[in-house]
Every structure is written in structure tokens, then in C-alpha cells.
Design a protein around this nucleic acid. Structure first.
Ligand SMILES: [Zn+2]
Ligand SMILES: [Zn+2]
Ligand SMILES: [Zn+2]
Ligand SMILES: [Zn+2]
Lengths: 149, 149
DNA sequence: AAATCAATTGAGAATCATTCACAAATTATA
DNA sequence: TATAATTTGTGAATGATTCTCAATTGATTT
């Protein structure tokens, strides 16, 4: 935890940004809830528990900043809000998501899986891939079992 | 064109929806601009040229309806607006997109490319895939050439 | 064709997420 | 400590989307 905060602090300093208390509190929330996919509002409410004076705009600004620095990725599952997702330590690519159409849970896939597809896209479309977003919509394991009952 | 309108009309009737003049005008805009990725506002302005009395809410309602019927897919490239994309004739899956980070153009990939990945996801995550969203962000061919100059 | 009933529409208000503006507070630096 | 630049909180502004509701339309029955 502290180790990851340190690393983020260095990334900020490298671009001459400061790790203010508000920013640190925000990062801590993201670390503590790493497996979730929090909206800005979600983050705001959680940060308020640690730092009640924080303003919503600051949370938006911090998330925006972390996005620029590729510390978090901004995703959209089509429900009208942006969600913010910490990059896995040392991950070259953004991870993938499985969204259950039944219960709404979101699973993560850390494995790359797209290596071959990216090669094809670069070769056949001459498009230089920098990043990707891959989301599968379907039925999760639990909901499949429920359907059988 | 007329043939595709007819098909859509049948899809609507099958669920006992009507193809009203407003809905037809909206579908015609989508057909005419099939290669674009129009926002609701874009569609509204174009439909107004054919049917000036139409209201924005009707366009939203129509796009929502076409989404439910899987005639169009709703996508979000992270710029704050939803975009609406006609499914290709007879396509089993939603097509993929290449978004240029430099000039903003959006290319389409109709080829499936994800067959193997979906098999892996179904087998290893026991997730029943119904749909997907795949977008690559990077540099398009034209912008790569510009950089070399 | 008129009557009937449900579906659909247009207009504008309401809502919701996100951004902006700006004065006050904080931080790093001299 | 004085200075300058960055960051913050507040509340207002914006922009996209949804909602409300009375009026209109479309299909169906007489
Ligand atoms: Zn589920
Ligand atoms: Zn994730
Ligand atoms: Zn380009
Ligand atoms: Zn498309």
C-alpha cells in the first residue's frame, strides 16, 4: 500500500504535480477498493469519510489527473457514468471486463488475450495501437446456475 | 435502402411497435450515414431536414427503441456523448472500432477477430458471452504518415 | 366514415453528471 | 518570512438525457 502510494507520488512529482492530502486520500480510496469500479460520486463519498472537507470538483480533477498519468483508466459501461479503474501494477495494457447483463456484476480479466488481434490490426489496418477497451456483456457463472434451478 | 426499411418495419411490428413517420425518418438518416457515428443531437439535426416538426425527445426515444431491438448499437468513445451505430446486415456481433487519438476519426472493423478470445472467456471464466465492445485507441495510417514528414 | 382506445408525439421542465470560475488556502522556493 | 505558483472548495453553469403531460396520431371496431 505505502509502496504503491510512494510510486504514485513519484509519478506525480516527475510531472511537477504535488501529492496533496486530498489527492492522497483519493488514491487511498482507489487502492482500497481496487476490485471495484467506482464512479466519481462513489469515490467522493468514500473520500469524504477520510477527508470530510474535500469538494466534488477536487475529486473530478484528481481522477482526471490520474487518468492523464495513466495511473487510472476511465471506463464507461453504458450506464451514464464514467468509472475509474486503477491500472494493475506494471500492466502494459488496460485489463478487460465481463459485465453480467443479469446481475450487473463486473469481473476483470488481467490476461492480455488481445496480442494476436492487435498484431492483425496493426498489419492489416496499419493502425498503431496504443490502448484498448474490451468489454464482454453476457451472463456470469452465478446467474447461469440460477437459471438452471 | 427500401429493402432495409422494410426489414426494420417488420422487426418493429413483430414487437407491436409502429413505424411512424418520425421513426422512419430517423432510420433513414441512420441508413444514409451508416459509416458515421452520430450522436443523438447529430441525428436530430439531420432528421429535422426531412421532418422539421420532430422533437429531440422523439429522436432519443426512437434511438432507445432501436437499441432495444438490436437494430442499432449504442457506443461511447469517452467524449461525453452516446453514439448510435447501425448493425451491419445480418451481423451476429457488433463490429469493432479504431479511434485515432490524433485526428479523432473512427474506422470500423467488420471482421470478427474475437472468436478465439470469446472461446477462452467462455471456457476459462465460464461466462456466457452475448455481446462485446472492442475499441482500439491509437494512431491512424494518415496521422502516422504526417508524423514522418 | 365516425367512434374508440392505445400508442406516440412535441414542448418544455427536470434531472444528472461533469466542468467552470474565482477567491481563499496551501505549497514549494527564495 | 515574503513571493509566486498550484491547488482547493463552493456554487454556479453547462450539456446530455429523461420525464411529464396534454395533444395528436394510428389502428380497430362499429
Ligand atoms: Zn450475474
Ligand atoms: Zn477493472
Ligand atoms: Zn488520425
Ligand atoms: Zn461503427
Amino acid at each position: 500500500m505505502e509502496h504503491r502510494i510512494e510510486r504514485i507520488k513519484k509519478l506525480l512529482h516527475a510531472q511537477s504535480y504535488k501529492l496533496t492530502p486530498q489527492r492522497e486520500a483519493t488514491v487511498r480510496v482507489l487502492l482500497e477498493r481496487e476490485e471495484d469500479h467506482l464512479s466519481a460520486e462513489d469515490v467522493y463519498l468514500l473520500v469524504k469519510e477520510k477527508a470530510p472537507e474535500i469538494g466534488l470538483a477536487t475529486v473530478y480533477r484528481t481522477l482526471e489527473l490520474l487518468s492523464e498519468l495513466k495511473i487510472v483508466d476511465k471506463i464507461n459501461f453504458g450506464d451514464g457514468v464514467s468509472r475509474y479503474d486503477l491500472r494493475k501494477e506494471g500492466a502494459a495494457h488496460f485489463h478487460h471486463h465481463l459485465v453480467c447483463m443479469e446481475c450487473g456484476t463486473v469481473e476483470e480479466i488481467v490476461e492480455d488475450l488481445l496480442e494476436d488481434v492487435e498484431k492483425i490490426v496493426e498489419r492489416d489496418w496499419q493502425f498503431k495501437v496504443k490502448d484498448h477497451r474490451l468489454t464482454f456483456h453476457g451472463i456470469c457463472r452465478k446467474c447461469q446456475q440460477k437459471e438452471l434451478e
